[in-house]
Nucleic acid binder design. Structure first.
Lengths: 333, 333
DNA sequence: TTGTATGCGTTATCAT
DNA sequence: ATGATAACGCATACAA
């Protein structure tokens, strides 16, 4: 393996002090243009690259952030991660990726590990931590962006980004009612998921507007996966064969539900209309194409990363972004 | 923000030297059990956690590796990434995620950035670098695992993991022939992709075995996406309406091709049989379910990470793993 | 069993 | 304009 060239090597070769070299490569004033050029040439020639973490030790800035997601395999988070990574790359930041597997303990462990690295900030997606645990994390990290999660108290180093789940759910209900569907079921995600709770609220509010009594029999909870959607839909359809509309927690669940409906001999959308949330690529791949609440996932990722940088550089903080999804009407409803 | 507790803080509080504390937390011999316990208690109490990178500076080991993929949004790489991350987590390693967007220049830039961090190794997926460029990377990084790419020369700090694309393609052809299909098209991925070239070779070999002349008209190249599959299939079907079997570069392409076939009024698999590669989750979600060469993607990720650790710890290196895919017969062929 | 000196690669501070 | 020295947080080598 090639030995790394260090500042000291360049300094020796140029017959100057390390500080002069440091100034040269960091574009700081304090040396003649001639010398600077001579040093830069040498840097090029000897293939010198500053060690990020040695620099980080000295400056207390690592230009490195953590990205914590439940599962990078889930298209929802994959899209967000892509946005985060793109924005990070553009701003010369690097990202640590960690999966929590939807497990609060593993999430805590992940944050612990990240903290040990002295990174500049964290983007935490769909956190399962308790309010207090999160408060603690907000205190210890220099900067935090929470995606899909809120916190009661504002903090100068915290920005939250949330999809407007309530409105999203209400928009879905409205569309079902426009379609004259009244037996509207909600297949929700994990019960301890916050966005699930908000969507459930929106679902109830939507029903109230339409003066349809809330019926617990029309609500199921499940894992946010296709398989979860299948299981929940099967239970639901057995219990209430009269269902003619399903609002699914996300597109994955919606697709699972759609398949089970078809397997039960119900046509989509004629017999059962289905609407998902997120608009992941799968939504336009399956047939019938999924009507869904479109969320600009990659943009959320980019926004999250930029917000984090803003906090780090002291230009932001204490904001709460609301992302407004839009109903994309396709073929399933 | 809470001030970080350092070794020095603990040392002062315990009235011992930093070294004693260091020994205590690293489980090294050289101090009484009493003292060790007293220090550990203090560590707990004061919430001390060693700074990974400060430690890395001293030891030249960061327990951090880079994961370079074309696009973490692509289920293929998402699955691999998940395996890598899981294995990393289990072994207390952290991973930097970088997307290259299938762009060789961006890949080079990514590796440059990673190298600046002084990480312990890199897992490089589907590299688009030239042979020489890769040789250079192998020389500068302490450890490298190449997924989906080979190198002519072996290196002590290099391990490659490749799917047996040739055999994979031949198996597909064999299945088509069993089905009595003779007009077999190949919708390949990007022309500069190595696995694409190997699959094309396998396709040709398969034809030769069956004594079917190779017909360039039956080969198309495209992006490894559903959209790419759609475009290529449309061109193909227009040019050769007699096609009755399609071997697709991957499942995404296969699904796109399948849809276009259906839109052209061809039934799958009756009129056109289709087989993909990878067996991503989508393969079992769409209807008809996709017949495909199953590749244990998450396992590849885990294997890659473990191989990398083996090189780092000096227990491995200079190996070339071949992953044998298996034909999963479902409904599309 | 415990401590001291030194170095990892870089930057900040204060001199010159 | 340039350099010497200390500091970042930790570990290694060597003393005591």
């Amino acid at each position: 393996m090639i030995k790394r060239t260090t500042l000291a090597d360049i300094a020796k070769a140029a017959n100057v002090s390390m500080m002069t070299v440091s100034r040269a490569i960091n574009n700081k004033p304090g040396l003649s243009d001639d010398l600077r050029q001579r040093i830069l040439d040498l840097v090029d020639e000897m293939g010198y690259r500053p060690n990020t973490f040695a620099r980080g030790l000295a400056t207390q800035q690592t230009t490195t952030v953590g990205l914590v997601v439940p599962d990078n395999t889930n298209p929802f988070f994959a899209q967000i991660a892509r946005g985060v990574e793109d924005a990070a790359f553009e701003n010369l930041y690097s990202i640590f990726l960690v999966n929590t597997n939807e497990d609060a303990a593993r999430e805590t462990a992940a944050l612990e590990t990240l903290w040990q690295k002295g990174i500049d900030g964290v983007i935490l997606c769909s956190s399962r931590q308790s309010e207090e645990a999160l408060e603690y994390q907000v205190q210890r990290f220099p900067a935090i962006v929470l995606v899909n999660r809120e916190l009661k108290e504002p903090h100068a180093n915290l920005i939250t980004i949330n999809v407007n789940d309530q409105r999203s759910a209400q928009r879905v209900l409205q569309h079902f009612l426009d379609l004259d569907r009244k037996q509207i079921a909600y297949i929700g995600g994990p019960i301890n998921s916050f966005s699930n709770q908000r969507r459930l609220e929106g679902y109830k509010t939507g029903l109230r507007f339409a003066e349809i009594p809330f019926d617990p029999q029309l609500v199921e909870s499940t894992q946010p996966t296709t398989e979860g959607g299948r299981e929940a839909a099967a239970v639901l359809l057995q219990r209430r064969p009269d269902v003619n509309a399903i609002f699914a927690y996300n597109d994955l669940v919606a697709v699972g539900a759609m398949q089970v409906c078809q397997e039960f001999g119900k046509k989509v959308p004629e017999d059962v209309a289905i609407i998902g949330v997120d608009d992941i690529p799968l939504a336009t791949i399956i047939r019938p194409q999924l009507t869904t609440m479109h969320v600009a996932l990659t943009n959320i990722g980019r926004l999250a990363m930029r917000a984090l940088i803003d906090i780090i550089t002291g230009e932001g903080g204490s904001a709460a972004f609301q992302i407004e999804p839009e109903l994309f009407i396709r073929d399933s409803a």
